[in-house]
Design a binder for these strands. Sequence first.
DNA 1: GATATTGTAGATACAATAAGTCTGTAATTG
DNA 2: CAATTACAGACTTATTGTATCTACAATATC
Lengths: 132, 132
Amino acid sequence: MKFTKATNYALHTMLMLVAASPVKPIGVQQLAETQGVSPTYLSKILTRLVKAGMIESVSGANGGYRLFRNKEDITFLDIIHAIEGTTSLFECNFVHGDECSIQAVMKEAEEKMELHLRNTKLMDLAPMQTKV
Amino acid sequence: MKFTKATNYALHTMLMLVAASPVKPIGVQQLAETQGVSPTYLSKILTRLVKAGMIESVSGANGGYRLFRNKEDITFLDIIHAIEGTTSLFECNFVHGDECSIQAVMKEAEEKMELHLRNTKLMDLAPMQTKV
DNA sequence: GATATTGTAGATACAATAAGTCTGTAATTG
DNA sequence: CAATTACAGACTTATTGTATCTACAATATC
Ligand code: SF4
Ligand code: SF4
């Protein structure tokens, strides 16, 4: 029960991208070096963000990644869901009717967390100095 | 990023225990059989609840487990913390000052979830039919 | 069009954690 | 004492996370 490191990398990368030019892409090499992670691995993570329609990749010389959606629209939850998936945190093989109280409690708790993550947009902390 | 099955077992077991007699303990064998899990494994999980001061174990013939604390006091969060630990869901090796915005957002989101789990007590859904 | 540059996909390897088993030991009952 | 029951620790196995390597596809520049 922990967020994966991939989520950490994704969040930091996205913060760099919102701070960067929306037209000139940034190479994965630079993004990876800043975070101390291998370019191929980070690329694999970013591909999930591409497939989620959040960023865009540009092949070829001077290629890289840049934002695709409006930076004002991207929430923490978008990124986390793209990396961790959207399945419920609490799973139960059995199905004891829709009235199962345990799942109801757990699901509601999860939604409280998601609500906060959905209400916090990347831009909300863009003034932050993206160190590392 | 998922709750472990151990948490699932712990929650179900606790629900059985609050529904049972507070004086006559229930053997792990019965608790395990109801949930379709091996007794030794469940015992290992329940030991963590014992160490958390939530339940009490009774050795010897006719032994087993029974509640220790007031059933009205036990929250979902108590159980989850006893099993999953209390460390933050989002961890970062670096320390970029206390003002790190990413960690602040993630931590706050986590606390939203915990708040709900802390406010929900086992008794709140005791009338539920504890199937399987 | 040739070549260098960059991202993509898949196979693979390694590590960490989760999930579960086994065995022996200690405590309690009767 | 003998039967019952929980406890502790070592151990095994399965699953997932983390990361690398390599071959390939797309693009830019000359
Ligand atoms: S009671 Fe709910 S959580 Fe428990 S096994 Fe049934 S469906 Fe799953
Ligand atoms: S900015 Fe915050 S989350 Fe990112 S590496 Fe620094 S301390 Fe960690």
